[in-house]
Design a binder for these strands. Structure first.
Lengths: 117, 117
DNA sequence: CTCTTGTGCTAGTGCAAATAGAACAATAGA
DNA sequence: TCTATTGTTCTATTTGCACTAGCACAAGAG
């Protein structure tokens, strides 16, 4: 479970963190029952504030991806397995967008637009 | 050419504006040679500052979607036509994500992750 | 020549991300 | 039961960015 963070990115760090976990879940690298490192631990290894990590964890909990409890930490839920259905469709779309020369932000913006419709 | 803006959204207004234009370009509603309303004009009709509209226009210019020049305004480029290639793949992925219960922000985050890889 | 339109600049306001520190509550494990 | 671990909650501060505002300027159209 490798987590990389870019503090300079315009994407909030807590979002990057959550994205990383979702990514691993969609790849099967993280499976239901797996336990994420404790917030304090992860915060230290990433040189980031604890609150930032916790915010990411709470976001994932709101999405039903992890179970969060004091003393036990963050555990991947069974629901996370359903994310793997997107593990194929996403790379396909991204490579297609790359081929046409569409930037990340443009692509995500178009998806937001489609989602709202 | 209908442009709607949600000032309360967490997505910046200038991003929403650009997204709207991209969306129309991908649908063929906007074709190469078409001219967008002037920044001052659009700003007034949307009750938004001129700079906000101009920022969106400049973003689209950086993406090569419009040609921008004083006295002439913003004109859709031929390159915009290539966006229509995504006009089918995007709705497919979005509906798939909806079916699995993946939120917009989660989906876009996963795409950013895939793009970076 | 004149109007229109984008460019560039400075300045101020409001909101959200991120940091920091502390007290608290639930859980696991010895 | 006792203890260490871990998430929860709170307040406070700093920082960056979106947005607004007003102005002077330059390029193009007619």
């Amino acid at each position: 479970m490798l987590i990389r963070i870019d503090p300079a990115s315009s994407v909030p760090m807590f979002e990057q963190l959550a994205a990383s976990v979702r990514f691993d879940a969609s790849r099967g690298t993280l499976r239901p029952g797996d336990r994420l490192p404790s917030a304090r631990e992860l915060a230290e290894s990433l040189d980031v504030n604890v609150h930032t990590v916790l915010r990411a964890y709470q976001l994932l909990r709101d999405e039903g991806l992890v179970d969060l409890r004091p003393g036990r930490g963050a555990v991947i839920t069974v629901r996370a397995a359903s994310f793997s259905d997107l593990g194929e469709a996403i790379p396909r779309l991204v490579s297609q967008a790359r081929a046409v020369g569409v930037s990340v932000s443009a692509l995500t913006a178009m998806i937001r637009q489609e989602y709202a419709a």
